[in-house]
């Protein structure tokens, strides 16, 4: 089958069907390319079908086109919020089974639904749908909020015990797409959402961030601190047999970006103070976040898995995550303070 006899499906969306008898409404974003390198090939068409299973829908949509639907370049899989809250396992399972979809495809929760996200047409786009996945790609976007979730990772998190899914939320707001929050899943479905601030901290705790920021209040004034680079090391320490502690060591490289309410020159002492305040603030925020996540009984950081991996008797380990203690240490270094010396 030659390349010109295939239609490239760049994104798949899964929504709840409006028809009460059907389970899903599947939407495909198909790129229409003209092959002229001078113009961008952002033209696309959407195909939708309501069916009780994903494969049935895809099969029916195949009969709606003259070309073969080709999923080798499907880079984004969007799951509507309504579907995500109900049951996530069969969807992830289906896409892992479907051999022609690359397992490096990105997953995301679409709010309010997948169809609206897919309908969104940005002003400039290389290929229809590339807007969606380039938001996640490390080399094209260094957003501090969105943490990309690939299909193979999702399957691992869904099937492994001691770790849960955490999926970025793609939201359509006022004809703009925004990805700055993260949805936390139980094994069954979507449970809670983190707000933008929490998402940033969550990313700091898991993969590290670049270009983050935080606002610090000292008694001299308010400053905006830019986190140039943040990384976290996580270790689990056995205090005694019953209590275990997860130790997070956060290293931050920062710069003072904005003096919000004064024009005073920064001195070395002031910089030290800002540094201490930043450490204190991040520590407090991280503790708060860890406690909320722990209370919701979700483990998106895989601490339970980490525990099990370090023990030979991992099958017999009871649920230790809920009584895990947290200890956070923050090392903040202000690299650029805007002063000499």
């Amino acid at each position: 089958m030659d390349i010109d006899k295939r239609s490239f499906v760049t994104a798949i969306g899964i929504d709840e069907s409006d028809n009460l008898e059907k389970k899903y409404k599947i939407t495909l974003k198909i790129s229409l390319s003209k092959g002229d390198p001078a113009t961008t090939g952002a033209e696309f068409t959407l195909l939708s079908f309501d069916a009780n299973s994903i494969s049935e829908a895809l099969k029916n949509m195949q009969s709606m086109t003259d070309k073969e639907l080709f999923y080798g370049h499907t880079k984004t899989i969007l799951i509507g919020e309504n579907v995500a809250t109900k049951e996530i396992r069969p969807i992830i399972d289906y896409f892992v089974r479907k051999a022609d979809i690359q397992r490096t495809a990105y997953l995301g929760v679409a709010v309010p639904n997948a169809l609206q996200v897919l309908e969104f047409k940005p002003k400039v786009e290389q290929v229809a749908g590339s807007y969606l996945f380039s938001m996640f790609e490390e080399n094209s976007n260094e957003s501090p909020y969105a943490k990309a979730l690939t299909l193979f990772d999702a399957y691992r998190r869904e099937t492994e015990s001691g770790i849960n899914l955490a999926m970025p939320i793609i939201e359509v707001q006022h004809k703009k797409i925004q990805v700055n929050t993260i949805a936390l899943f139980s094994k069954k479905g979507l449970e809670s959402k983190l707000n933008a601030k929490e998402s940033e901290l969550f990313k700091l705790l898991t993969v590290g961030i670049k270009n983050g920021s935080t606002i610090i209040n000292t008694n001299d004034g308010t400053y905006t601190i830019k986190i140039l680079k943040g990384k976290t090391n996580c270790k689990i320490i056995n205090a005694d047999n019953n209590t275990k502690t997860a130790f997070f060591h956060i290293k931050l490289q920062t710069s003072v970006e904005e003096k919000v309410d004064n024009h005073l020159d920064l001195t070395y002492e002031k910089v030290q103070k800002i540094q201490d305040e930043t450490e204190k603030k991040i520590k407090k925020d991280v503790h708060l976040l860890l406690d909320t996540i722990q209370k919701s009984k979700l483990d998106p950081m895989g601490l339970g898995l980490k525990l099990r991996a370090s023990s030979l008797l991992h099958r017999d380990i009871p649920d230790i995550y809920s009584n895990l203690n947290f200890k956070v240490k923050v090392d903040c270094r202000i690299k650029e303070a805007g002063i000499v010396g």
């Binding site: 390349i3 010109d4 295939r6 490239f8 760049t10 390319s33 092959g35 090939g41 370049h73 022609d100």
Partner: peptide
């Protein structure tokens, strides 16, 4: 003819369009 998935998608679409 067999494995267009190994190309970058922009390039794959370019070839498809030019053909």
């Amino acid at each position: 003819s067999y494995t267009p998935e190994i190309l970058k998608i922009q390039f794959a679409l370019l070839i498809a369009g030019s053909r």
